[in-house]
Computed example of a mutant assay.
Amino acid sequence: MATTGQAPSGRGDARLTEQGIYTAALQLIDADGVGALSMRKLAAVLGVNPMSLYHHVPNKAALLRGVKNLVAAQFQPQVDGGAWQEQLYRFARDFRALAHRHPKLIVHSLASPDFIEPEDPFWTGLTGILNSTGVPAAEVAPVGAVLTSLFSGFLLAEVNGTLGRLAAMRPAPGRAGSTAAPRADADANDSFELAVQTLIAGLEAHLPPATAR
Rank of each mutant, 00 (worst) to 15 (best):
A2T: 12
T3W: 11
T3Q: 11
T3E: 12
G5K: 04
S9H: 13
R11E: 09
G12R: 15
A14P: 15
R15I: 08
T17S: 15
T17W: 07
Q19I: 04
Q19T: 09
I21P: 01
T23L: 08
A24W: 02
A24R: 02
A24Q: 03
A25N: 00
Q27R: 14
I29L: 06
I29C: 04
I29E: 00
D30V: 05
A31L: 14
A31W: 10
D32N: 10
D32W: 04
G33W: 01
A36K: 11
L37S: 00
S38W: 11
L42R: 07
A44C: 08
G47K: 05
G47A: 04
V48G: 03
V48D: 06
H55S: 11
V57G: 07
P58C: 09
K60T: 03
A61Y: 10
A62Y: 06
R65T: 11
G66T: 09
V67W: 04
N69W: 05
A73M: 05
Q78V: 14
D80G: 11
Q85Y: 06
E86D: 12
E86P: 03
L88A: 03
Y89L: 14
Y89S: 13
R90A: 13
R90S: 08
R90K: 09
F91C: 00
A92Y: 10
R93L: 15
R93W: 10
L98H: 01
H100L: 15
I106G: 05
V107K: 08
V107E: 14
D114P: 05
F115V: 13
E119N: 14
D120Y: 05
G125H: 00
L126P: 00
L126I: 00
G128D: 06
I129F: 04
L130G: 00
T133R: 01
T133A: 01
P136D: 13
P136S: 09
G144N: 07
L156F: 13
A157D: 12
A157W: 03
G161S: 07
T162N: 07
T162Y: 06
L163Y: 02
L163N: 05
L166E: 11
A167S: 04
M169L: 11
R170H: 05
P171S: 01
P173V: 06
G177Q: 00
G177K: 02
T179R: 15
T179D: 10
A180E: 15
A181Y: 05
D185S: 08
A186C: 10
D187R: 02
D190Y: 07
D190M: 15
F192E: 02
E193H: 09
L194I: 07
A195F: 07
V196G: 00
Q197A: 14
A201I: 07
G202C: 14
G202K: 13
E204C: 15
L207T: 03
